[in-house]
């Protein structure tokens, strides 16, 4: 981080124009985005008061007194098991479970997130590698293309997630437990987007470029490595973003059926069993943060890679 701050006068000199453009674009959108987020928070608070008011009114009726607006406001924003927890309650729960607990503790949300993330990443890695391998096969073998491709496309329209409970329970009954079953679901969910995207990408070089490779008398492997694979990267990254989000959903849903005690899905499930709404919202925000982190990470790798290759828009 020895770079001069971008806001300083002349800080952008010597950089490519794109960096300056990027900063300009972010700051151009920051105001509206901030406004929308603030509006969402305001709506959230209003909804908290509205949804939790019934409980306060009931309490007041039981105590045989009228609840004024001030009472409702106070009573709704700090309930233990609210219908909708207020943002500051969720923030407090997040702070308690993220910052105040040791990371190795079962009460730490970071630990639960890591349980889910490790399954997600394992599965995502497997799914991506297999997906790329199948895509290379499809591009080079016409029979494979015509046999597999229609099924790969059709599989995107069916709710694959429905088989998650079965995979978990069946693997459990043959003695496979823990990370692997969830990783298999994640792999399965990220596999098809990668296949479809990668096949499109590997086919994206046009006839003139392929002809050029032929005049160089390049072998199929050389054509693959030097032309098709680099040309496919923009498509690959687009599918990776879809795939990693799907992988995370798969890992979370994979934690539901066995009544798991570890992971974000388990936090959601136990929260819903015991009516711990604050815990559900905290787990939900953590899942959102993980998704943002994963997608953002791939976006970063994409920008760096494509920038290096001169393909960035």
């Amino acid at each position: 981080m020895s770079d001069p701050p971008l806001a300083a006068p002349g800080a952008g000199t010597g950089r490519s124009g794109r960096v300056g453009l990027l900063v300009w674009r972010i700051s151009g959108a920051a105001g509206p985005v901030l406004a929308v987020i603030l509006a969402l928070l305001a709506i959230w608070y209003a909804a908290t008061v509205w949804l939790n008011a019934q409980w306060v009114l009931d309490q007041a009726a039981r105590a045989d007194r009228m609840a004024g607006f001030g009472d409702i406001l106070r009573g709704t924003l700090n309930q233990e098991r609210p219908v909708l927890p207020a943002p500051h309650q969720v923030a407090a729960e997040l702070w308690n479970t993220v910052a105040l607990q040791p990371v190795t503790s079962r009460r730490s949300l970071v630990w639960h997130a890591w349980v889910t993330l490790s399954a997600t990443l394992t599965g995502f890695g497997i799914g991506t590698v297999l997906g790329i391998a199948l895509a290379i096969g499809i591009v080079h073998n016409r029979a494979m293309d015509m046999s597999v491709m229609p099924w790969a496309i059709a599989s995107q329209t069916i709710p694959i997630l429905a088989i998650a409970p079965m995979i978990i329970v069946v693997l459990n009954s043959v003695g496979v437990q823990g990370l692997l079953p969830k990783a298999i679901i994640s792999a399965y969910l990220s596999f098809f987007p990668v296949v479809v995207g990668m096949v499109t990408g590997l086919r994206s070089p046009d006839a003139a470029q392929l002809d050029l490779m032929r005049t160089y008398s390049a072998s199929r492997a050389q054509t693959l490595w030097k032309l098709r694979f680099p040309a496919s990267l923009p498509y690959l990254f687009a599918s990776l973003k879809v795939g990693v989000a799907a992988s995370l959903v798969g890992a979370i849903v994979g934690e539901l059926p066995t009544g798991a005690v570890r992971g974000l899905g388990a936090r959601l499930l136990s929260g819903s069993y015991y009516g711990q709404t604050v815990q559900i919202w905290a787990a939900l925000l953590m899942a959102a943060f993980c998704a943002a982190l994963l997608v953002g990470l791939i976006g970063l790798i994409q920008r760096l890679t494509l920038g290096r290759m001169g393909l960035a828009r």
């Binding site: 151009g28 959108a29 105001g31 509206p32 985005v33 901030l34 406004a35 929308v36 987020i37 969402l40 949804l51 219908v83 973003k241 989000a245 995370l248 959903v249 979370i252 849903v253 974000l264 959601l268 499930l269 929260g271 819903s272 009516g275 709404t277 559900i280 919202w281 787990a283 939900l284 899942a287 959102a288 998704a291 943002a292 997608v295």
Partner: peptide, 28 residues
């Protein structure tokens, strides 16, 4: 203004594991 603000937020939310809201909505 709204479009500039809502599009990034919407894009962000579209990538989230929204299925996780299921326990909350089942409660409601």
């Amino acid at each position: 203004f709204l479009k500039r603000g809502l599009l990034p937020v919407g894009n962000f939310i579209a990538a989230l594991p929204i299925v996780g809201t299921a326990p909350i909505l089942v409660m409601w």
